[in-house]
Amino acid sequence: MKNNIIFTICSNNYLAKAKVLANSIKKYEPDSLFVIFLCDVKIDSIDYSSFADEVIPIAEIEPEFMNLAQKYNIVELNTSLKPRACEFLLIERQVDNVIFLDPDIKLYNSLTNIYNKLIESTIILTPHICTPTPMDHRTPGENLFNNFGIYNLGFIGLSNCPTVLDFLLWWKNHTYHQGFIDVWNGIFVDQLPINHAPIFFPNVTIELNMGVNMAPWNLHERYLSINNDSFLVNGTFKLIFYHFSGFETESLELPQLYYNRYKLADRPDLTEIYEKYNEELQAADHSHYRKIKSHYSDIRNDFIKRSKRGKWLKKIKKIFN
C-alpha cells in the first residue's frame, strides 16, 4: 500500500472527468495511489479499472449509506460522504497522507509541496480567494463566499494523526445531519462548516499559493502565462492544479451562473487549458457518461413519493388541478 493516496468521489456521470484527473495524476504524481469512491452502483459494461487504481463503491464502506441516499439529492450525497472516505483511508487503510480532489480538477505539476507541508500540518485548506474582489457588481463578490464557504472543498489535504481523526468525526457529524444545500439557513453541504476548522483544530495550514486550486471564482487575482512549456500563475507561481468547476463540453465557455465577471473571450490566457481540457473530456467519452443517471437519485425520489411530504404534495396538486 502506498503511503500517499489521492482520491475523488463521483457518480457514474462524472467518470470521464475523473479519467482526465487520473491521467494527470499518473503524469505528475506516479507514486501516489489514485482511488475513486463511487457514489453509485457499478454498471457491468463499464471497465472501472481503467479509471483509477481502485474503485470502491462507497455504499460498501458506510452502513448508513441508504439512509443518506434517501435524505439527500445526488450532490448532497456525494459531498456528505467525503469525511467517511477520508476516515476509511486513514483508519482502515492506515495511509500516511490523504489528498481529496474534485473529479473536475486537473494537475499541471506535482503535489510535492502539499505533501511536504503535511509533515508539519494536520489539515491543508485553500481559500476561494486570496485577495479582495472588485466592486463591479459582478460575481463572485466576497459576500458569495460568506454563504458558500471561505474555503473550497474541491481540495483538502490531511495527515494521519489524532487531531485529524477528531476533525473527521466533527465534520462527518455535520455532513450526515446537515449536509443540505440550504445557504439561507447557513448550511451548504460539506463546505460551510469548514469555516470553523482553523479555529477548532490545531496546525491547520491555509494554502495561499496562487498556483493551487486556480478556478473560475478566483480569476480576478490569477492570470496564466507560459514559461518553458509550463504554466505560471501571475508570472511567479507554478500552476499546480486547475479546478474546471461548472465546465461542460457543449459550451466551451467559463461558467456564468455564479461567475460572470469573465467570459473566455475576455481571458485569452485561459484558452489553451480550456480547449485541451475539452478535448480530453471528449476523448474520455464524457458525452456518454454524463447522461448516466445515478441509481441513488431514483431511490431518493421514490422515498420522497412514499413519505408524508410526498403525500402532502399529491394533495396540493389535486386541490389546484
Rank of each mutant, 00 (worst) to 15 (best):
I156N: 01
P103G: 03
F100M: 11
I74W: 10
H196W: 14
T163W: 07
S24G: 04
P268K: 13
I226M: 10
L21I: 02
Y108D: 06
H286L: 05
F237L: 01
N227V: 02
D182A: 12
I304M: 11
F7Q: 06
E253A: 14
D53E: 07
E253I: 05
R138I: 02
I61V: 07
F241E: 00
I119S: 10
T131V: 11
E250R: 11
N228I: 00
N73M: 08
K17H: 09
V212W: 00
D285C: 09
T249Q: 05
Y258L: 11
I206S: 05
K106A: 05
E120P: 00
N203Q: 13
Y262L: 05
E92M: 09
G310F: 10
T236A: 06
T139Q: 14
P162V: 06
R290Q: 12
K293E: 10
D44I: 08
S245I: 04
A69C: 07
Y277I: 01
K314E: 13
K315F: 15
P198G: 10
G141A: 10
F100P: 00
S307W: 11
P63F: 11
S24N: 05
K172R: 15
A284Q: 03
I46E: 02
M66N: 12
F148T: 01
K17E: 11
T175D: 06
H243S: 00
Y108T: 05
I124A: 02
L89S: 01
E142K: 13
V55R: 01
K42A: 07
A22N: 14
I58R: 03
D298C: 08
L90A: 02
T122H: 15
L254R: 01
L21W: 01
P63K: 14
P255Y: 02
L68N: 01
N234A: 03
R138G: 03
I61Q: 06
I319F: 14
E62Q: 12
A16S: 14
I299F: 05
A16H: 08
N3M: 10
H174A: 09
N23W: 08
I156F: 04
R138E: 06
Y289F: 15
I273K: 10
T271G: 06
H137R: 14
Y14M: 13
K106T: 01
N213R: 04
Y262F: 15
I5C: 08
K317A: 08
K42E: 09
F155P: 00
D102Y: 03
H128Y: 09
I5T: 13
F88N: 02
H137M: 13
C39R: 06
F37C: 06
F88W: 14
G179Y: 07
F247A: 00
H128C: 05
F247K: 02
Y262N: 04
F231G: 00
L89N: 01
H286C: 04
I46K: 07
I304T: 08
T236I: 10
N152P: 00
I316M: 15
Y259R: 13
C86V: 04
Y151C: 01
W171C: 05
A59S: 12
G186D: 07
K318M: 11
A265N: 07
T79E: 13
C10N: 11
T133M: 12
Y72C: 05
T126H: 07
E250M: 06
N209E: 04
Q178H: 15
V41E: 15
D44R: 12
E29T: 09
T205N: 10
